[in-house]
Computed example of a mutant assay.
Amino acid sequence: MNPLLFEVPLQIETERLILRAPHKVGDGEIVNQAIIDSLYELKPWLLFAQELPTVEETEINLREAYINFLKRESFRFLIFDKDSNDFIGVTSFDNIDWDIPKSEIGYWINTSYSGKGYMTEAVKELVDYGLDSLNFRRIEIRCESTNYKSRAIPERLGFVLEGTLRNEDLSADRRELTDTCVYSVVR
């Protein structure tokens, strides 16, 4: 089946969260504020956090993500608290290969909300949706070997650590080689 024919909802709900595609004008402002609030924690791990993006740059990035959502190339979801509507973070299906079919999951959280299980809850929902509704045969989570907070999520969710790729990537600041842990769940 052509991926453009998949009915992918713009919003998915969990017990405490709403995962929503970045399709609303103005999403850039709330996401940019979370980047500002969390820059110190995001900078060691994420390329986009090396320099603070402007609100306009963040808005453009989110609109491009929505275009990719519609083209079924990736699915980015903004995470909101169901009760307060506070923005919590981002999770996404990236590097989708519809021939297998498989995907990677990425994520980052506004520091104010870390340690409360929100990201684990959001990623679990994506995993379930990917395996059950998109029929993915494989879902990966890749993260730097020293990013223990990020590694905790696939470990909590029962992913298998398939291995550590040594000197596989550059650090977010592009200054040194890093090792990448590859976790997966298969159907």
Rank of each mutant, 00 (worst) to 15 (best):
D99W: 13
L78D: 06
E125D: 07
D86T: 11
I60Q: 11
E51L: 10
D86Q: 07
L161G: 08
Y118H: 15
P22H: 06
E125F: 01
I153D: 07
Y107P: 06
L4Y: 09
V185D: 08
L5R: 12
W108Q: 04
S150D: 07
Y113W: 01
I60M: 14
P9E: 08
R142K: 15
R142L: 06
E73P: 01
L42N: 06
E29K: 15
F69P: 02
T120Y: 01
N147C: 08
S38I: 03
G130C: 03
N110S: 12
A34M: 07
G115Q: 05
L165R: 15
D173V: 12
S92K: 13
G28L: 13
Y40S: 14
N95P: 04
R16T: 00
K43N: 06
R16F: 00
L170M: 14
D86V: 09
D169R: 15
F75G: 00
L126V: 12
I139C: 10
D37F: 02
N68I: 05
E155L: 09
D173E: 01
G26I: 14
N32Q: 14
G130H: 02
G89V: 00
Q50P: 06
K102Q: 12
R72N: 02
K102E: 02
I109G: 05
Q33N: 08
L157H: 08
T91S: 08
F77C: 04
P9Q: 10
L131T: 09
L62F: 12
N68Y: 08
E168P: 04
G163N: 05
Q11P: 04
N61F: 15
K116W: 03
